[in-house]
Simulated assay, not measured.
Amino acid sequence: MPLVLESPAFHAQGPIPALYSCEGKDVSPPLAWSGVPPGTQSLALIVDDPDAPDPAAPRMIWVHWVLYNLPVGTTELPEDLHALPPGTLQGLNDWQKIGYGGPCPPIGTHRYFHKLYALDIVLPDLKLPTKTQLESAMRGHVLAQAELIGTYRKTR
């Protein structure tokens, strides 16, 4: 069974509700997964937007959330996550903050990639890593990856 990442709040390739954006409460969406492969020691989650700042002329990937060392027995994250699963650590998003930062595209409809990784190790404390630093630490340890893409366009 492949690793699968889903959300009860939005469907793959579908619009992310405003609640989870800068136009709403800017809270993290609920996420759930299944199919964690044998040998997995921890999970990591990265949420980013490859369409920044303008989908017609993207210049950067904007990072919205970095989580790692999620315990293997964890199968979901609730909406508006406040209490991290035991042992879970966070990195810095591109606002240079810890935690979730929701969609807030300056122009156009952007895609938001929610990427879950099954790792064969528990990573050391990377001291608030960026996405790039986390990806470097994960290199050679990814057993499986799942992706959920949602879209968002500002209404105002």
Score class of each variant (00 low, 15 high):
residue 103 P to Y: 05
residue 51 D to W: 03
residue 69 N to R: 07
residue 13 Q to T: 10
residue 116 L to I: 01
residue 12 A to L: 11
residue 44 A to S: 08
residue 50 P to H: 09
residue 9 A to R: 06
residue 133 Q to K: 09
residue 65 W to G: 01
residue 85 P to L: 00
residue 127 K to T: 15
residue 19 L to G: 11
residue 40 T to E: 07
residue 34 S to M: 13
residue 15 P to N: 15
residue 121 I to Y: 02
residue 130 T to H: 08
residue 8 P to R: 11
residue 119 L to P: 02
residue 117 Y to C: 02
residue 88 T to Y: 00
residue 28 S to G: 10
residue 70 L to W: 04
residue 79 E to S: 12
residue 22 C to G: 15
residue 44 A to I: 03
residue 120 D to H: 04
residue 16 I to G: 07
residue 95 W to T: 12
residue 151 T to C: 14
residue 146 A to E: 06
residue 107 I to A: 15
residue 17 P to A: 08
residue 137 A to F: 01
residue 134 L to H: 00
residue 114 H to M: 09
residue 102 G to D: 06
residue 116 L to S: 02
residue 131 K to R: 15
residue 122 V to C: 06
residue 73 G to P: 10
residue 101 G to H: 12
residue 70 L to E: 03
residue 85 P to A: 00
residue 133 Q to N: 07
residue 125 D to Q: 03
residue 110 H to P: 07
residue 114 H to Q: 10
residue 155 T to W: 09
residue 127 K to C: 13
residue 36 V to E: 06
residue 3 L to S: 06
residue 15 P to S: 14
residue 154 K to D: 10
residue 137 A to K: 01
residue 7 S to Q: 06
residue 52 A to W: 15
residue 40 T to A: 09
residue 134 L to C: 00
residue 43 L to I: 05
residue 53 P to M: 09
residue 96 Q to P: 03
residue 15 P to T: 12
residue 152 Y to C: 04
residue 153 R to C: 12
residue 155 T to K: 11
residue 114 H to P: 04
residue 71 P to I: 08
residue 77 L to V: 08
residue 123 L to N: 01
residue 96 Q to D: 13
residue 35 G to P: 05
residue 64 H to A: 08
residue 27 V to E: 08
residue 88 T to W: 00
residue 128 L to R: 14
residue 58 P to D: 12
residue 4 V to P: 08
residue 98 I to P: 04
residue 105 P to R: 03
residue 130 T to M: 04
residue 93 N to S: 04
residue 141 H to V: 00
residue 49 D to N: 14
residue 76 E to P: 11
residue 76 E to D: 14
residue 134 L to R: 00
residue 125 D to S: 05
residue 66 V to M: 05
residue 146 A to Q: 04
residue 39 G to S: 08
residue 18 A to M: 11
residue 120 D to T: 03
residue 69 N to M: 05
residue 101 G to T: 13
residue 114 H to V: 01
residue 74 T to N: 10
residue 146 A to N: 05
residue 22 C to W: 11
residue 64 H to P: 02
residue 34 S to W: 07
residue 144 A to F: 03
residue 30 P to R: 03
residue 149 I to L: 10
residue 96 Q to R: 14
residue 72 V to Q: 12
residue 31 L to A: 03
residue 132 T to N: 10
residue 124 P to A: 02
residue 147 E to D: 13
residue 84 L to Y: 07
residue 81 L to S: 03
residue 148 L to Q: 07
residue 3 L to C: 05
residue 90 Q to N: 02
residue 76 E to A: 15
residue 22 C to M: 15
residue 61 I to A: 13
residue 69 N to P: 07
residue 63 V to I: 11
residue 74 T to S: 12
residue 25 K to F: 12
residue 71 P to W: 09
residue 131 K to Q: 14
residue 42 S to K: 03
residue 54 D to H: 08
residue 6 E to C: 13
residue 65 W to Q: 10
residue 134 L to T: 00
residue 48 D to L: 08
residue 142 V to K: 01
residue 60 M to C: 13
residue 71 P to Y: 08
residue 48 D to N: 12
residue 21 S to T: 12
residue 101 G to I: 10
residue 38 P to T: 14
residue 152 Y to V: 03
residue 105 P to I: 05
residue 19 L to P: 10
residue 56 A to Q: 13
residue 144 A to T: 01
residue 42 S to V: 04
residue 142 V to W: 02
residue 23 E to T: 01
residue 148 L to E: 05
residue 130 T to P: 01
residue 36 V to P: 06
